[in-house]
Simulated scan of single mutants.
Amino acid sequence: MVGLRPSDVPPTPAVKFIGAGTAACIADLFTFPLDTAKVRLQIQGESAGSGAVNAIRYKGVFGTITTIVKTEGPRSLYNGLVAGLQRQMSFASIRIGLYDTVKLFYTNGKEKAGIGSRILAGCTTGALAVTVAQPTDVVKVRFQAQITLQGVKKRYNGTMDAYKTIAREEGMRGLWKGTFPNVTRNAIVNCTELVTYDLIKESLLQYKLLTDNLPCHFVSAFGAGFCTTVIASPVDVVKTRYMNSPPGLYKSAINCAWTMVTKEGPTAFYKGFVPSFLRLGSWNVVMFVSYEQLKRAMMMSRQKVEYAT
């Protein structure tokens, strides 16, 4: 057995909720530079920005990371990390931590769930998570898109300043800007990610290709990350562009998508695909592996406390 042994008692909803948020934060710490590179590539081509900003061109994921380090310093790769961790604790806890509970609700308590029940559960927890965590996502994206150069004015001086500035200048609606494309994206991401992970893991165990340990979790998470990137990338690009845009640049998320098609062509929807896959694939691997181990560790600790008392 590679990793901790599965608990004899199924993990409680609270354990899943806390474990998912914590595992997502761990994954963000490892993959945040890739996410920043993805955002920069996705917004490249927008007309907004000063001459100095528009002069910077990014090519490929590692080229983008190298350019950011050379022009802005390595710390810029982690712009928006605080908001990112806030987002994961509120976002992943709901969309991943409550997935099994909602799935049981749709199956009336039956352990064996069909594809329809899994998809409904993924849509439900994904949409609910976005509703709660949208302001943190807006701030994270804007920090990642912010160019840190001498002579270029910063949009925000800190995480709390960003929340206050957006609320003051754009109203509370500004903090929930891009909710529609984000709900759409996360319904797609959540369904593809969790359902694919579920199905791959079940198949590996059913056909005894692997046992319920780290290699199984790794393979399942990698497959889920690739499938999710292919399906969700177009919506992700629109979401990033729209959330980062200054007031008035796009009338709506649909207008943003239409502008991209007419000015940059359909391939614009897959800008940043490689960093998206590298980020989402690696994020899935770190998150799901950490999540499975955290659930087992917390249940072991809980059982030891109960036994001691």
Rank of each mutant, 00 (worst) to 15 (best):
K164I: 11
N182L: 08
L175H: 05
V189G: 05
F143I: 01
W176T: 14
N182A: 10
T148N: 06
Y156D: 05
Q134N: 06
Q146G: 02
A167I: 07
E170N: 12
L149A: 05
M160S: 13
I166M: 08
T184R: 03
K153F: 03
G171V: 10
Q150R: 14
V152L: 04
R168K: 12
K154R: 15
G158Y: 07
P135L: 12
G171N: 13
G178N: 04
T184M: 07
A187D: 15
T192H: 04
Q146T: 02
L194M: 14
G171R: 10
L194I: 08
G174W: 09
N182P: 10
R155A: 11
V152R: 03
A187S: 15
G158H: 06
P135V: 08
L149P: 00
K164W: 13
T192D: 00
L149R: 01
Q146S: 07
A167W: 15
E193Y: 07
N157L: 13
Q146K: 03
T165V: 00
M160P: 00
N186F: 06
K140I: 02
K164R: 12
A145I: 04
K140S: 04
R173G: 08
V183K: 10
T192P: 01
R168D: 14
W176G: 13
R185M: 14
G171E: 14
A145D: 07
I166R: 09
Q134R: 01
E170A: 10
E170Y: 08
V141P: 00
M172Q: 09
V139E: 00
I147R: 01
Q134Y: 03
G174T: 10
I147N: 01
T165L: 00
K140A: 05
L149C: 02
K153A: 08
A145F: 00
K177Q: 15
M160E: 09
L194P: 04
A162S: 08
A167V: 05
P181T: 10
T165M: 01
F180Y: 04
R142C: 03
I188Y: 05
Y156Q: 06
A167Y: 07
V152Y: 05
G174P: 07
K154N: 09
L149K: 01
G178P: 01
